[in-house]
Structures are given as structure tokens and as C-alpha cells.
Design a protein around this nucleic acid. Structure first.
Length: 404
DNA sequence: CGAGATTCATGTGAAGTATACCTTTAGGCTTAA
DNA sequence: AAGCCTAAAGGTATACTTCACATGAATCTCGTA
């Protein structure tokens, strides 16, 4: 039984308790640091390429690639900020739009992308029903109405093309060549190097973009970045020695992902604070690592459509009894039963097959197509989540599906 | 015994369908003069 | 007569289904040593 004053005391206490954090924002994903470390050559190159825009000349299209957390998006945003600043000082009609193509239901198809663009220009359109050509036309007209230098940044562009084919890129370049007054510059960002390689030659040449590689950070570089951020983020002495090093080492092990390192540090500190510790210790990092991965998976799972969840539930259910060698056939059998039980019409095997493939793309399961010789051909499904998270995943799934 | 044919269970591509939503158009009803 | 509303017609994107064919190694078959 908590007395009325109890909660009040708690809050008072909470307020007066000194926090580990000085400025937590510094460690959050959207934070824009003053200086970007170890990316001078890339920034330089990007600046060189984009600069003509300030003289109202069309810059080359640009393609940035490198693993996640190597500063692609950050660098691009930095360049964007600088450009917009200079442009507005000199009255240059410059406009930059940043779109992440991976966001489901926002920009993951050609139609939705253009509709999103029109939205940016303040001309919202319905999300279905119109011919795609019509959208292009509207977009084209809007652009050509006023003289404007337009830069379109497409993050995770490989996702877009993988789902919808090359036509989008082709159409966008075509628009540019037809524009009279305005100029459209494309910036593609991708972590898939093969994407640019495998692009249709015709498209490649019509894009004619300059490629810039973002190599992974090494452990020392990550350490430096982390050190810089943690000085800003924490009160002095709140980080025990070795913590930054270990975060850096963890992240370096995973292809030098700086974002991950920063997340790790932040979550570690959050855990430390919640535990009532005065400072962040090394073993907070391990807890943080597990938590980050779990949270990521939970988030993905919760936002999936019901059918996806049902398929996933079947996979995990089978996994409980038989951790190895899960095949599509058995998953489908169980899925059929479950989807009927919860009043969801069962989808065909064909569709479920695609769903499984999509779950693979999301990184929740990993699948390999194998041939079992005489016994046919199937996908071998493995669960890609940390085992410690699985009970909780089952819980989430059965809640979402309102299974008993 | 080994090369080639067979087989199985499902992968995968293409085309078709259902649904939800869009615009256009034409008819009917209301309204105001 | 002009204006407004409504419903039908004609169109699209998306999620899914249907159909049909592709896969690829374990197993089978059968000729040969």
C-alpha cells in the first residue's frame, strides 16, 4: 500500500538525485555532432561534388555506400545543413528532402515515394487509387513551377529498388532531363555495395553518379568518437575506466558500427542509473547489449501485420520443441491451424513462403534454401534472436494474436 | 559400382483476383429568379 | 437555368491467390566391369 505522499516523495527524490547524464541528447540517434571525426576525405569529396548547386548548376548525382553506422547519413545531413545555411544566406532557392526508403508504408514503393515527395511540397495526395504517372506529372509540375535546386536524398535506396525494380531511378533521372527551370539531384545511400554493381547499365549511365565509400571505423576511431560524446553527455567521473574501450571494442567487432557503440553507451548508462549506481561499470555493457537487441526485435515484431505474427508464432512454437532444422512444411501446417483458430483466414503456402522470406530480411529469422535430395527442397529456418529474448517474444506474439 | 534418371517438397515467376480508394461524368433534385 | 449532390463507371495500387514450372541432391535403376 503506497501512501498518497509516497509517490510524491519518490518524484522529489528522483529530482534531487544527481543524474549520471549531463546531456542525454548527445547520445541519441538523431543528435547532430559539431564535428564529424575520421570522415574528412568523404566530407571533402561530397562538398566538392555538391558545391555547384550554389551557383545554380546541377551537381552530379551521388552515391554513398558503406556498412551501417559508418556515418553516411550523418555526413549527408551535415553537408545538407551547411548547404541550406549558405543557400539561405545568399538567397539561393535550394531545397533538400531526406527520405528513408525502408520505412514500411511510407516510402517503400514507387507510388508511396512520389506521394511522400508531393507531401513534402505541401500537396498531399491519397495513398491509393491514382495512376503513378499522374503522381509523376504532379511532381514534375510542382517542381517546374518555380526555379529551384532540389536535392533528393534516398536513404536505403537498395530496399526501394529491390522491391520495385529499376524503373524508379530511371523515371527520376528522366524527370530531371525534362525539367526546364529546376534541377533535381539524386543522392542514394546504401549499405549494400553490390547494389550499385548490379544496377542496370542503362540506368547506371543515365544516373552517372559519383560513388563515395565509407569504410568501417576501427576500434581506435570509435573510441575517439565515443570519448568525445561521453564527455558531453556525462558528468565527469560517472564512467568507470574501461567502459568506453569496451563499448568501442564491441562495436568494432561488428563491422565498426559507431551508432551501435553510442547506443551501447547510452543504454548502459540508463541501466546503471536505474539500478541506482553512481557510475557506469563494465558489466552494465553486457546487460545493455542484450537489451538493445531484444528491444529492436520486440519493436519489429509488434509492428508486423497479424499474418506475419502468426507465421512467426508458428516458427517460434516449433522452435520450442525442436530448436534445429525447422522446415517450411511444418511451419505452414501449424500456421494454418493457428490462423484459423484466431479467426484469420489462412493464407496460401505461396504467400507464407514470401512472408518467411520477408521475416528473413527483417533479421528475425535466418533462412537458407536447401535441397534434401530425395526428400524435396525447402527452407531451413533458424531463429536469429538471442535465446534469452524468446520467452518474451512468445509472450508478445500470443498477446498480439490474443491467443490463450 | 557408378553414371544417369527419378523423385520429392517446396521455391519461384507470372498472371489473375479482391479490395479499397481515386476521378470523372451524367442524371436528378433543389433553389432562386 | 444554375448549382449542388449522388451514384455509376472506369481506373489504380496493393495484398493475396492460382497456375505452372524450376530446383537440386538423395535415392533408384540399370548397364557394365
Amino acid at each position: 500500500m503506497i501512501k498518497k505522499d509516497g509517490i510524491n516523495d519518490f518524484f522529489q527524490n528522483y529530482l534531487s538525485k544527481s543524474s549520471i547524464f549531463k546531456n542525454k541528447k548527445v547520445l541519441q540517434a538523431n543528435y547532430m555532432p559539431e564535428t564529424i571525426f575520421h570522415r574528412d576525405p568523404q566530407l571533402r569529396q561530397m562538398a566538392d561534388i555538391m558545391a555547384p548547386v550554389l551557383k545554380l548548376e546541377k551537381p552530379s548525382n551521388l552515391f554513398l555506400y558503406g556498412k551501417t553506422g559508418t556515418g553516411k547519413t550523418l555526413s549527408m545531413k551535415h553537408i545538407n545543413d551547411q548547404l541550406t545555411q549558405v543557400a539561405s544566406q545568399n538567397n539561393i532557392p535550394l531545397r533538400i528532402t531526406y527520405i528513408n526508403c525502408k520505412l514500411k508504408k511510407v516510402a517503400d514503393t514507387e507510388y508511396r515515394l512520389i506521394s511522400q515527395l508531393l507531401c513534402e511540397f505541401g500537396k498531399p495526395v491519397s495513398f491509393t487509387g491514382l495512376p503513378t504517372d499522374e503522381l509523376y506529372k504532379q511532381f514534375f509540375n510542382t517542381m517546374d513551377n518555380e526555379e529551384i535546386m532540389y536535392i533528393l536524398v534516398l536513404d536505403e535506396i537498395d530496399q526501394l529498388v529491390k522491391r520495385n525494380g529499376n524503373d524508379i531511378l530511371y523515371n527520376l533521372t528522366r524527370i530531371n532531363s525534362e525539367l526546364k527551370k529546376s534541377q533535381l539531384t539524386l543522392v542514394g545511400i546504401s549499405n549494400d555495395w553490390f547494389f550499385a554493381e548490379n544496377l542496370d547499365l542503362r540506368i547506371k549511365s543515365s544516373l552517372g553518379w559519383e560513388e563515395i565509400l565509407f569504410p568501417p571505423y576501427n576500434a581506435v576511431q570509435i573510441q575517439m568518437i565515443l570519448r568525445n560524446r561521453s564527455d558531453l553527455a556525462f558528468e565527469t567521473g560517472c564512467i568507470q575506466p574501461g567502459v568506453v574501450e569496451k563499448c568501442a571494442a564491441y562495436a568494432a567487432r561488428e563491422h565498426g558500427d559507431a551508432r551501435r557503440a553510442i547506443d551501447l553507451l547510452r543504454v548502459s548508462a540508463e541501466i546503471a542509473e536505474r539500478d541506482g549506481c553512481e557510475s557506469v561499470a563494465i558489466d552494465h555493457i553486457d546487460k545493455a547489449e542484450a537489451k538493445i537487441e531484444r528491444d529492436r526485435v520486440f519493436e519489429i515484431i509488434k509492428t508486423q501485420p497479424k499474418q506475419f505474427q502468426a507465421v512467426l508464432y508458428s516458427i517460434f512454437k516449433i522452435h520450442e520443441q525442436k530448436p534445429e532444422n525447422i522446415f517450411t512444411g511444418e511451419v505452414y501446417e501449424l500456421y494454418k491451424e493457428i490462423s484459423t483458430r484466431i479467426g484469420l483466414g489462412p493464407l496460401t503456402q505461396r504467400r507464407v513462403s514470401d512472408i518467411v522470406a520477408e521475416l528473413d530480411m527483417l533479421g528475425i529469422v535466418s533462412v537458407t534454401v536447401i535441397s534434401k535430395g530425395r526428400y524435396g527442397r525447402t527452407r531451413e529456418i533458424n531463429i536469429a534472436t538471442p535465446p534469452s529474448a524468446n520467452p518474451r517474444i512468445m509472450k508478445i506474439l500470443s498477446d498480439e494474436l490474443s491467443l490463450a
